[in-house]
């Protein structure tokens, strides 16, 4: 399984043709207390860079963009009652949605963990 990152602070774990997407720990720390997560519809087709989810914090709503194109196959329903999971565990149990990748070559444009850490350090 490989993990990739976007400049918009999403992560995606890829296993076979399924990717699991969330926001990074850095992103959740910047957003502060998360009070609501709007998740995409299972079955919806999404294109790389589309705003497919919204993370609401006390202060503001932030779009989450899908790192790759595909079809949404599962969403993290546990966030309905416990959106604060995204704060507590953004890069594991605070995942947002899973999708099947329609074009795995899109991953080539994403950052690996080391590159993302370097990117965050430069912000």
């Amino acid at each position: 399984m490989s993990r990739y990152f976007t400049q918009d602070h999403e992560w995606i774990d890829v296993s076979g043709d399924v990717g699991t997407v969330g926001i990074t720990d850095y992103a959740q720390s910047q957003l502060g207390d998360i009070t609501f997560v709007e998740l995409p519809e299972v079955g919806s087709a999404v294109g790389k860079g589309d705003s497919v989810s919204v993370v609401d914090s006390v202060k503001a709503a932030s779009d989450v963009y899908t790192p790759v194109s595909g079809e949404v196959v599962e969403v993290n329903d546990a966030l309905g009652d416990e959106p604060e999971k995204v704060n507590a565990d953004a890069e594991a149990s605070g995942w947002l949605f899973r999708l099947t990748l329609s074009d795995p070559s899109e991953l080539d444009a994403l950052m690996d963990e080391a590159a993302y850490q370097f990117y965050v350090a430069s912000l």
Binding site: T35, F36, E38, D56, A60, A61, P83
Partner: peptide
């Protein structure tokens, strides 16, 4: 007052 958790801005 709103229902649910999604905030109006």
């Amino acid at each position: 007052a709103l229902d649910g958790r999604m905030a109006a801005r």
